[in-house]
């Protein structure tokens, strides 16, 4: 999923303080799971902002809604008939949802209510970590299902580097060395021969380095 983190409330207040009618829009997908932008967080933020403005003697109307997703037209369209009532929208979706909202409702200021961090997993309740950087040419088949692009600090394709110590990465002693993990798992799978194969230079043009990306699938287009 896409993992996001909460933004400090002070920062949010600063963004929206000059508006009189505000819509806070949550998203029912990834940001709900990582407890940053779901219905519950929308409710908490709305309550906090209402109290803040009231305490400041400002009259600000705040409405709340949580959409199934904010990265698809059909759900964002649900706001079509009401959006003009609002001076601004505070979206608690990931950056993708915030942008799609801004594209769709061109005349309404849209602000991000969370910090979008990465694509990752829930390690345990309250702990999320990165697993994929969307490089566009997945090589997990060669690396025992462990991604060196997102999990090796140097993105080495033929690791480990000399900084790997007792299974930990040199940038942080609490961080597993991705290449140690790869080797351990290849060993477990009896596929250490894979490790002997040198992985050739990667074509980074499918990664973000090649500019903004797009997937067009003629087979499913209407």
């Amino acid at each position: 999923m896409i993992v996001a983190d909460k933004k400090p409330i002070e920062e949010i207040i600063d963004m929206v303080k000059d508006f009189k009618k505000l819509l806070i829009v949550g998203c029912n997908e990834c940001v709900t799971v990582c407890e940053a932008g779901g219905k519950k967080e929308v409710g908490i933020l709305a309550s906090a902002l209402r109290m803040y403005f009231m305490n400041e003697g400002k009259k600000v109307d705040i409405d709340e809604i949580t959409l199934e997703r904010q990265c698809d037209h059909e759900y964002l369209e649900e706001l079509r008939n009401n959006i003009d009532q609002y001076d601004a929208v505070l979206s608690l979706a990931c950056g993708v949802g915030v942008q799609f909202m801004a594209e769709k409702y061109f005349g309404t200021p849209v602000f991000p209510g969370v910090n979008t961090c990465f694509m990752g997993v829930t390690e345990e309740r309250g702990v999320w970590s990165e697993r994929c950087q969307g490089c566009g040419q997945c090589m997990l088949g060669k690396t025992a299902g462990i991604c060196p692009i997102s999990r090796c600090a140097k993105r080495l394709l033929n690791g480990p580097c000399g900084g790997s110590t007792k299974g930990k990465c040199e940038i942080n002693k609490d961080l597993d060395c991705a290449w140690q993990l790869i080797i351990d798992r290849l060993k477990e799978l009896g596929r250490l021969d894979d490790y002997e194969e040198i992985i050739p230079i990667k074509d980074w043009s499918t990664e973000r380095a090649g500019g903004p990306r797009k997937v067009v699938r003629e087979d499913v287009r209407l």
């Binding site: 409330i9 305490n55 400041e56």
Partner: peptide, 8 residues
């Protein structure tokens, strides 16, 4: 923390 941040 929230109540502190919003001045309550």
């Amino acid at each position: 923390e929230i109540l502190k941040a919003i001045g309550i």
